[in-house]
């Protein structure tokens, strides 16, 4: 479903050159739950940004359903993010002036749904993450875990092909983190493809597959027994 082919990302600052991703190639089949781990600076977040079309690689290809997304226009990449991808950021990244429901509705409106249709779909997504009763609350009225679940609802509301999560439990306590990870597992069981960056080895093990990175390279790519 999504593949990286000879993916390289080089950052240049003055005379200094940092190779963040060094010629990576791998594929994520539909329905797989993949975790990416590694130390800070290993390139895992950079990898997520390239796969999620938030950034352009220096060279290489990002293929979604066999189509290389790198040469596409900014508008087409935005459209692809809207229709095919879902994002969950470390610090939730939900909009403070919108309620939980409105945060979830916005991408659906952009997809062309009417307000009524969008609200029905958004409510379903919020129900899935157990936040339907807080749908009219602003982010400031929700706990960190609840905000992260709003972010998940927003990411899944429009039925994306792939969900990208960048250390989604980094700012949460262990109990809430467990709940959030459980939500991902439940979504994956329903067939959702997920690529998640995490520092936590115990959460990494819960996925089908774990890629470990160091210095911009894949140092291990293992299938986890727990899920198989």
């Amino acid at each position: 479903m999504i593949s990286a082919k000879n993916l390289t990302k080089i950052f240049t600052s003055g005379d200094q050159t940092v190779v963040a991703l060094n010629d990576l190639s791998f594929s994520v089949p539909e329905g797989q739950f993949l975790t990416v781990t590694g130390k800070s600076g290993s390139g895992k977040s950079t990898l997520l940004y390239q796969l999620g079309l938030l950034d352009l690689p220096t060279s290489g290809e990002v293929l979604i359903d066999g189509v290389d997304m790198v040469p596409m226009s900014e508008n087409d990449r935005t459209m692809t993010r809207l229709n095919d991808l879902g994002y969950i950021f470390q610090d939730y990244a939900i909009l403070p002036s919108l309620t939980a429901l409105e945060n979830t509705v916005v991408p659906l409106l952009m997809q062309g749904y009417s307000k009524e249709e969008a609200e029905i779909k958004a409510k379903k997504a919020l129900e899935k993450v157990g936040l339907l009763d807080r749908m009219n609350n602003l982010p400031s009225q929700l706990s960190g875990g609840q905000q992260q679940r709003v972010a998940i609802a927003r990411a899944i509301g429009h039925d994306p092909k792939i969900i990208f999560a960048d250390e989604p439990t980094a700012n949460l306590d262990s109990e809430t983190s467990d709940q959030v990870i459980q939500t991902f597992i439940d979504l994956n069981r329903e067939g959702q493809t997920i690529v998640m960056v995490t520092h936590e080895p115990e959460y990494a093990k819960l996925a089908h597959r774990t890629i470990t990175m160091a210095d911009g390279k894949i140092v291990s790519d293992i299938m986890n027994g727990q899920r198989h």
């Binding site: 938030l54 879902g86 994002y87 990244a93 909009l95 916005v106 991408p107 990411a155």
Partner: peptide, 16 residues
């Protein structure tokens, strides 16, 4: 600025 980035990130067209 950050929220504008997030909107763009989740696929909201810059014109919107």
């Amino acid at each position: 600025r950050r929220f504008i980035g997030i909107l763009k990130g989740i696929g909201i067209n810059r014109k919107a």
